[in-house]
Computed example of a mutant assay.
Amino acid sequence: MTKSIWKVDAVHSEISFSVKHMMISRAKGTFNDFDGTIEADLDALTNAKIELTVDVNSIDTRNKDRDDHLRSADFFDTEKFPKATFVSKEINKKSETNYGVVGDLTLRGTTKPITVAVELGGQSKDPMSGNMVAGFNGETSISRKDFGLTWNQTLETGGVLVGDEVKLSFAIEAHKQG
């Protein structure tokens, strides 16, 4: 079969993260502005190409002061590095609907390979537009220090304010083009 272009529908998709806060709980947030394309034959996803771009300024943790701090040079430094990107390099089939997607994540000017566990949720015809729509869900964990996100504060009770491991997850709805 031939590959089709699938465009990420940000309105029906979500990219979120969580990180340990004060060693006892998790701070969570989302990125509200992103886009991407998937060039794929859904019956042969190991040959797909995935590209995703996130506007890091769109970070939303439901706290303006924290979001502003995350945009600052202490963390994402969005004036210098306004975008994060992911580009797939290799896709390995794990089961009928599960894949390991290896690709390059670029964040804060640093590019590192990561592996994302991805599940193909299926496909359906959109009753409004008549277009085919596919769903993808996934998650991975990264070390924020690997990407130059090293700011932290020591707690008087021991430990640190912000954990190193960041859990990333997404639910993507993509619309077939053409």
Score class of each variant (00 low, 15 high):
residue 1 M to S: 12
residue 2 T to P: 05
residue 4 S to M: 07
residue 4 S to D: 10
residue 6 W to E: 09
residue 6 W to G: 04
residue 8 V to E: 07
residue 15 I to V: 14
residue 17 F to I: 00
residue 19 V to S: 01
residue 20 K to S: 15
residue 20 K to E: 13
residue 21 H to N: 07
residue 24 I to D: 06
residue 27 A to M: 07
residue 30 T to W: 00
residue 30 T to C: 05
residue 34 F to R: 03
residue 35 D to M: 08
residue 36 G to S: 07
residue 37 T to G: 03
residue 41 D to V: 10
residue 42 L to Y: 06
residue 44 A to W: 02
residue 48 A to E: 10
residue 53 T to L: 07
residue 56 V to M: 11
residue 59 I to H: 01
residue 60 D to F: 01
residue 61 T to N: 08
residue 62 R to L: 11
residue 64 K to H: 04
residue 66 R to H: 03
residue 68 D to T: 12
residue 68 D to S: 14
residue 70 L to D: 01
residue 71 R to D: 12
residue 74 D to R: 09
residue 74 D to S: 13
residue 76 F to E: 06
residue 78 T to E: 00
residue 78 T to V: 14
residue 79 E to H: 07
residue 80 K to N: 14
residue 81 F to M: 08
residue 86 F to V: 02
residue 87 V to Q: 13
residue 88 S to V: 03
residue 89 K to A: 11
residue 91 I to T: 13
residue 91 I to N: 06
residue 93 K to A: 11
residue 96 E to K: 14
residue 97 T to V: 12
residue 98 N to E: 15
residue 100 G to E: 11
residue 101 V to Y: 02
residue 101 V to S: 04
residue 101 V to F: 05
residue 102 V to K: 15
residue 103 G to S: 05
residue 104 D to H: 04
residue 105 L to E: 05
residue 105 L to K: 02
residue 107 L to I: 06
residue 108 R to W: 11
residue 108 R to L: 10
residue 109 G to Y: 13
residue 109 G to F: 06
residue 109 G to D: 05
residue 111 T to D: 08
residue 111 T to E: 11
residue 111 T to Q: 11
residue 113 P to G: 08
residue 113 P to Y: 10
residue 114 I to H: 01
residue 114 I to T: 03
residue 116 V to T: 11
residue 116 V to A: 12
residue 118 V to G: 04
residue 122 G to T: 09
residue 123 Q to Y: 03
residue 128 M to T: 10
residue 128 M to L: 09
residue 128 M to C: 07
residue 129 S to G: 10
residue 132 M to S: 15
residue 133 V to T: 15
residue 138 G to P: 01
residue 138 G to K: 00
residue 144 R to M: 11
residue 144 R to L: 05
residue 146 D to G: 02
residue 149 L to I: 15
residue 149 L to R: 05
residue 152 N to P: 05
residue 154 T to D: 12
residue 160 V to G: 08
residue 161 L to P: 03
residue 163 G to N: 04
residue 164 D to K: 02
residue 172 I to H: 02
residue 173 E to R: 14
residue 175 H to L: 12
